[in-house]
Write a protein that binds this DNA or RNA. Structure first.
Length: 717
DNA sequence: ATCACCCGGGG
DNA sequence: GTGTACGGGTGAT
């Protein structure tokens, strides 16, 4: 049966790319996309005289969640390219425009009930069910594309192409133009549905197009001539508390260019992407380049549109600064306990699965249900804040999240029998669920509202407190708790506690496992318990480590190995007593690594710190290591966007000139000498992170290490 | 001492 | 087309 591979909108036409019997062909359909306008109906004739507007109809639509339908104008457009200008003119008259940022391809799919990868009948009508989990994904002819420039060390666009690989075929040892045209014909012959690249958006494709231009070769990777590569400037944006650099996407016509270095593909694979494409209705090339937050928004938009709700056009979203009062209210997050510092055995860990999504669904949290106008006297109140919640109808968010939780559970069950594909699909859905919460508190989120965010964390705190109470009532002692997890000790059966809590709260509390031993270290500066660092050995033999250097992406490989090797020694212990017995071996590890550093034998490549700069060089107010590294790169003519990685090693930590304190990784050569004293200090600090609970801080460790090596501080100089 | 700046999540 | 708040760390001033 035919399947819908991709969809495109061009020159007033929708192009459906239909796969069937190993071939993929385009089908052009005339299509007039629509925008909606909230304005007095008598203006319809005036509006229909506007040049781009083909037709104006009156329709009943909901313009705001939770309101009743009202008359609005539906404007059919001949051409979408001027839509923003048109919407601008209309809004300047004081009317409100809707569905303006809903691309024509998506409108078309929604209208016909279609979605990417849907199975179609011979008349190109839907022969599939969008919500089912029991569909078969079509066979996709998939080839991997890789391009290598001549210079491997510092690849740049001026380097000629050395080698091109497409699937099993290799093009090399020929003039560059021949190689590029060879690729074009190879793609045409093998006719893949999907071209996979590893970082194709950030390097391979822009590089190939650039080389094709330089060499005067023609390059075509799509099933039709690709758009001349747009000036795909990457963007830097703020997400998950840090700046992320996102390259512009290189999309093909009639063939999918999927870059594996995107969040959704990395977490869900091709199979997870297809699954998400089906339920969001977003074409796969675009979808693969979205953040999970945008994907979940897409699901919400999809649900809203199907319910007859219009999507307001939001432009020029200025940074709205929160007032002090708002901040005070909003930042009451979920509950985090201070851990009880120490080394423990026989600890059980229990987690609520998808706590926040479950709260949204079971407590009916949605922008239109929290503080709704219809139930001001409802007895159901959000804890701590006292907000009322709608008792009349189920909110948009629960209607989206509920089925999503169910879908994930289905895949999770199927994954239990070892299906890798279902594992990937449940994994990517997990990320949608996780971000669906954060999005609530995002001031620019489409269906976000700070009171929802607040209500969810309020419920979460109440639930964790309630759980702690039940645990204590049934004879358990609480050692640590973070948001949705609890570490307890006691003679009772933790499984019974889980069942009791699950029943009382209405959200499943799961026994994550038991620990042979677990360590909750104190703060580095005082004796208080750290709230987010611990490590322990689970009874299934796995180490669980949080918060320490090992887990950080800026940590040098050398330090990561050190902590890994230390923990490997501790892994032999089954009890706290045995754990103390391993300490001499662990100290040996520290000695070995410290000696390697002080002898100058460590590999500088393993000492590299990898950080992601938040600002551009001129915006750094404090000239630290990042700024120094950026400075060196700038001297070399390398431009670094905020969010891109910067790598450096410490070369002279005490130098008077900040830009001499480090050396950027690109400039490391065989003569580069690292700062032994600095790295010795870093090594001991990393060791301390693990050993402090056993009485070894970095000064004690210094004695232990130096004593055995018969070394003196003078050896450094 | 205080401020600037980095990182974190799961399997 | 872009979750927050916050704790924990290091390093500069």
């Amino acid at each position: 049966m035919p399947h819908l591979l991709d969809i495109d909108y061009r020159d007033g036409h929708i192009i459906l790319w239909i796969m069937h019997a190993g071939k993929c062909t385009p089908h052009r359909i005339r299509y007039q996309p629509r925008i909606y306008l909230e304005c007095p109906v008598h203006n319809r004739h005036l509006i229909s005289t506007l040049p781009q507007v083909r037709q104006v109809r009156v329709e009943q639509k909901i313009t705001s969640l939770g309101q009743e339908p009202q008359d609005v104008l539906a404007l059919s457009l001949d051409d979408w390219s001027e839509v923003f200008g048109l919407a601008d003119i209309l809004e300047q008259r004081g009317w409100k425009a809707y569905n303006v940022d809903l691309p024509p391809a998506r409108q078309f799919l929604l209208e016909r009930g279609l979605f990417p990868m849907a199975r179609l009948d011979w008349h190109l009508h839907l022969d599939d069910d969008q919500q089912t989990t029991g569909y078969t994904a079509p066979e996709l002819n998939t080839l991997h594309l890789d391009v290598t420039p001549r210079s491997v060390k510092n690849p740049c666009f001026s380097d000629p192409v050395k080698e091109i690989r497409l699937g099993a075929d290799i093009l090399e040892n020929m003039p560059e133009a021949d190689m590029i045209e060879g690729l074009s014909s190879l793609v045409k012959e093998t006719d893949p549905d999907v071209i996979l690249t590893c970082g194709g958006d950030s390097f391979q494709l822009p590089y190939l197009y650039h080389r094709a231009l330089e060499a005067g070769a023609s390059l075509q990777l799509g099933r039709q001539q690709d758009d001349p590569p747009r000036q795909n400037k990457g963007r830097s944006y703020f997400s998950y508390g840090r700046i992320i650099y996102k390259p512009g996407g290189y999309l093909l016509r009639g063939r999918l260019h999927i870059d594996e270095q995107t969040f959704i593909v990395r977490e869900g694979g091709m199979r997870g992407l297809i699954d998400l494409g089906r339920i969001t209705g977003i074409p796969l090339q675009q979808l693969s380049r979205l953040s999970p937050g945008s994907a979940v928004t897409a699901l919400q938009v999809d649900r809203a549109l199907k319910d007859g709700v219009l999507v307001p056009w939001r432009r020029n979203l200025s940074e709205n600064f929160k007032t002090a009062e708002e901040l005070l209210r909003a930042d009451r997050g979920a509950l985090i306990l201070e851990s009880r510092v120490g080394v423990y055995e026989n600890i059980a860990e229990m987690d609520f699965t998808s706590l926040f999504p479950h709260i949204m669904v079971t407590r009916n949290i949605s922008p239109e249900t929290v503080l709704c106008d219809c139930c001001p006297d409802s007895p159901v109140r959000v804890p701590f804040t006292g907000y009322n919640i709608c008792q009349q109808r189920v909110g948009l968010i629960p209607r989206v999240i509920g089925p999503l939780i169910k879908r994930r559970m289905t895949y999770k069950r199927m994954a239990e029998s070892g299906s890798q594909e279902h594992q990937m699909m449940q994994n990517v859905l997990k990320w949608l669920l996780v971000t669906s919460f954060g999005y609530m508190g995002f001031n620019k989120a489409r269906f976000g509202r700070i009171e929802c965010h607040e209500s969810i964390t309020a419920y979460a705190r109440e639930i964790l407190l309630q759980t702690m109470e039940l645990a204590q009532d049934t004879g358990f002692e609480i050692l640590h708790g973070i948001v949705d997890s609890l570490w307890v000790r006691g003679s009772g059966d933790p499984r019974e506690l889980c069942d009791l809590v699950s029943g009382t709260v209405g959200i499943p509390l799961e026994l994550k496992g038991h620990y042979h031993w677990i360590v909750f270290p104190s703060n580095r500066h005082n004796r208080a318990g750290a709230m987010n660092r611990y490590f322990g050995l689970m009874k299934d033999g796995k180490l669980k480590v949080r918060g320490i250097e090992l887990r950080r992406r800026d940590t040098p490989e050398f330090i990561r190995r050190l902590q890994h090797d230390m923990l490997e020694k501790m892994k032999c212990a089954r009890t706290v007593d045995e754990l103390y017995d391993t300490i001499p071996c662990v100290l040996d590890v520290v000695r070995r690594y410290a000696a390697e550093i002080t002898c100058g034998n460590a590999d500088p490549g393993e000492l590299v710190f990898t950080t992601h700069n938040r600002y551009r060089l001129e915006d750094y107010r404090q000239k630290g290591n990042q700024a120094a590294a950026l400075y060196q790169l700038q001297e070399e003519g390398v431009e670094v966007q905020p969010g891109q990685a910067v790598q450096y090693i410490h070369t002279d930590h005490t130098s008077r000139y900040y830009h001499n304190r480090v050396k950027v990784a690109e400039l490391i050569d065989p003569d580069t000498v690292y700062d032994k004293k600095k790295y010795y200090d870093i090594t001991l600090r990393a060791a301390e992170s693990i050993l402090r609970p056993f009485g070894y801080d970095r000064y004690v460790l210094d004695d232990v290490v130096m004593g055995s090596e018969q070394m003196r501080v003078e050896d450094f100089y």
